[in-house]
């Protein structure tokens, strides 16, 4: 990477209790570009699994973007909140404080949120309520199962000798369902950390978040991996799960077959970074046209046509 970048350690938020790193080009920072914010996935601190967010932030900065990686309260180096908010509400409040800080300290007018797993869910939920969020990069976000998901799931397991072995010794998802049906609650402790994505209330909540996001005109890049088979197992699952959400022209989809959930392989990370860099260079995000003009509307229209050609 030849372009020079600088890193700045910051403490942000109302109590200055959120620790983050701003990475940006060393000299001229193009104005009008959205500032990228990379969110924690699970309890891994802001560098990300195998330091992938450091590499991504440096790559984005070398291409002219400002990037903030920060720890949500209670994660990494950030202190716990003192207001007793639930974990989800606390995460959303933290993101709002980070975005507000970027608006005042870095003159950010538009934001792109990037997140993996829980980070993707936080990005979606926050992004659906703040018009400053111009883009979302969602890596393995939560989506409900569909009929095709179950067909693929069982077809895959029927082909695996291990599944038959598990069946014979009373292990696996089917046996768990049978046990639960018969009143056994022993598996519930381990399962309790997983949100029941098939639950109608959860499905309606996510659908509403995606609909609001699309209505705000937010551009989305979603990447699904085959490494999260208990949640999704095909590229278009999100479209089938939310058939009434108007994704056309705003959602770009990629499916990484053979890739694990946290992009452990360097080759998968390179591919992922390539997808993100290409998406972020779209006309609506780079400063070739002045923001908030008819020109921007025109570039968004171009983008819709471009996405339509991708079949998303």
């Amino acid at each position: 990477m030849s372009a020079k970048i600088v890193n700045q350690a910051v403490t942000i938020g109302r109590r200055q209790s959120l620790v983050g790193i701003v990475t940006q080009p060393a000299g001229y920072v193009p104005s009008g570009r959205p500032v990228c914010v990379i969110l924690n996935s699970g309890i891994i601190h802001r560098v990300g699994h195998h330091r992938m967010y450091v590499a991504l932030a440096r790559m984005l900065a070398a291409a002219g973007s400002q990037v903030l990686r920060f720890d949500l309260s209670g994660i990494g180096d950030s202190e716990n909140r003192l207001d007793g908010l639930s974990p989800l509400d606390a995460a959303i409040a933290d993101i709002r404080e980070a975005v507000d800080w970027l608006a005042t300290s870095k003159s950010a007018q538009r934001i792109i949120l990037i997140g993996l797993c829980s980070g993707a869910d936080h990005a979606l939920i926050y992004g659906s309520s703040d018009p400053r969020v111009a883009g979302l990069v969602l890596l393995d976000p939560s989506i409900p199962p569909t009929l095709q998901y179950y067909c693929r799931y069982f077809a895959r397991h029927l082909r695996q000798p291990k599944s038959w072995g598990d069946m014979l010794i009373g292990r696996g998802r089917v046996w768990n369902w049978i046990r639960k049906f018969l009143g056994d609650r022993s598996e519930e402790v381990l399962e309790s950390h997983r949100i029941k994505l098939g639950d109608p209330a959860v499905r309606a909540y996510l659908e509403s978040a995606y609909r609001r996001t699309m209505n705000l005109g937010t551009q989305c890049q979603a990447v699904f991996t085959s490494g999260f088979p208990h949640q999704h197992n095909y590229r278009r699952q999100i479209l089938d799960a939310f058939p009434s959400v108007p994704f056309e022209g705003q959602l770009r989809l990629d499916y990484f077959d053979g890739c694990d959930h946290v992009f452990t392989s360097e080759a998968d990370r390179k591919r992922l970074f390539g997808v993100i860099m290409k998406w972020i260079q779209q006309p609506g995000f780079v400063e070739t046209l002045p923001a908030a003009t008819t020109g921007e509307a025109a570039s968004a229209k171009d983008l819709q046509m471009q996405h339509a050609s991708h079949g998303t």
Partner: peptide, 8 residues
């Protein structure tokens, strides 16, 4: 708690 960069 103070996060900072140091060194050359």
């Amino acid at each position: 708690m103070t996060p900072f960069f140091f060194g050359s």
